[in-house]
Amino acid sequence: MYRYSGIRAFLLVVTFIFLGFSFPSKTQQNQLPEKTRYLDRTFKEVDIQKDIKFAESVNEKGELENLKLDIYTPQGDEQLNRPVILWIHGGGFRPGNDKSQSYIVELVKRFSMKGYVGLSIDYRIREQPRENPEETIFDAVEDAGKALVWLRENAEMLKIDPSKIIVAGGSAGGILGTNLCLNDNNNIPGVDNSGIIAFVNLWGSPSAEWGEPVVDENDPPTIIIHGTEDELVAYDNSVKLKAELDKNNVRNELVTITGAGHTPVKHMDGFEVNISRFLFEIIQQH
């Protein structure tokens, strides 16, 4: 009985080959049908590697602090030279939030299912960040710069294209990202913005206290998501930022969520579409 079963299986394989059929690869098995990569969720699952050390920095207490990141990749994806999104969490630059912040994790997963590689990073925070906002921003941007260095050094392992980097940050992470992408790094040594092709600013347009943007024509295309009733980061900051981007002919989009406060996660399904379309068009041009 077993011998005939084996013969039958062999004949089935031969028939498939003869008729031009092929067995699906791991990527095909995990992909959803009739979807467009980078625009739709084309993968069913995401692989996650947690707590990868990418650098060391001296914190406000004078102690050496290990900086870590989590890596999110589409499960079974075999494509090389993928774009990468550097995700930066919020939390007011204070203890209590890190790279595992819930809405950041949800967004990283959603965009990794679209085919992006996602890196969610930690950076130095402070007990009293407003006592010296300049130093707070300096440390945070410097750490994000170190993540960019690590990203480039490990591009082959990550199967990414270091000339296709997207920075995305929420709240304090958006403020950090604005300083990283739009402020010429505040003269922070060693921070290299090369390869950044877009910035996703999630309700994090800073006031002058946190490094008001100094925009120029070389800044990356920027999409801003912001609620009109935000009591922590003024919506008007984003209106002003858009005006500066327009003035300097930097491609941009302001997605206004009328009536929404800070961190409007219940609107995520909607603004996910806005971000996906914005980034997809930019990816096609690179």
Results as ranks from 00 to 15, higher is better:
S22K: 14
D236A: 11
T178K: 01
N237V: 05
G169W: 04
L182A: 00
Y116E: 03
G270M: 15
E65C: 09
H286Y: 12
G174L: 03
S276R: 10
K242D: 06
T222P: 00
P133S: 08
I225D: 00
I257T: 07
G259T: 10
N185D: 10
P24Y: 11
V250F: 01
K242M: 12
V14S: 10
F54S: 00
I282M: 06
M157N: 15
T263V: 13
I52V: 15
G91N: 04
E253S: 07
Q75K: 15
C181H: 00
G174T: 05
V255A: 05
A198P: 02
F278S: 02
G190N: 13
V233G: 00
I224D: 02
L11Q: 11
C181F: 01
L232H: 10
E253Y: 08
K99F: 11
L254T: 00
R37Y: 11
S276K: 08
I188Q: 03
N237D: 04
A140L: 06
L39C: 13
V105C: 07
V105P: 01
N81E: 13
G177Q: 04
E253T: 05
I71C: 02
N248Y: 06
G227Y: 03
Q79T: 09
G174V: 04
N252W: 00
D192Q: 07
L67A: 08
D143E: 11
L241P: 00
F18K: 13
P213C: 13
F278D: 00
I188C: 05
E45V: 09
L86F: 08
P162Y: 02
A144P: 05
K26L: 15
Q75W: 07
K242W: 09
S57M: 09
L12M: 15
E272W: 04
V117C: 06
R8I: 14
L180M: 06
S100V: 12
E209Y: 11
V105Q: 09
L39F: 13
L119K: 03
G91A: 05
I175H: 01
L80C: 06
D77G: 03
H267L: 14
T136F: 06
L245S: 01
S276L: 10
L241G: 03
K109W: 03
A172L: 07
N201S: 07
N97V: 04
A144E: 14
G91M: 06
D40N: 13
K242F: 10
Q128S: 13
K99E: 08
Q285R: 09
I17L: 15
K247I: 06
E134H: 12
Q284H: 07
E281Y: 05
E63T: 04
Q49T: 13
E209F: 14
S205K: 01
A9Y: 10
L202Q: 01
R130F: 15
K240Q: 15
F16V: 13
A208P: 03
E142A: 13
E65I: 11
W210S: 02
I224H: 04
Q75H: 14
D47Y: 09
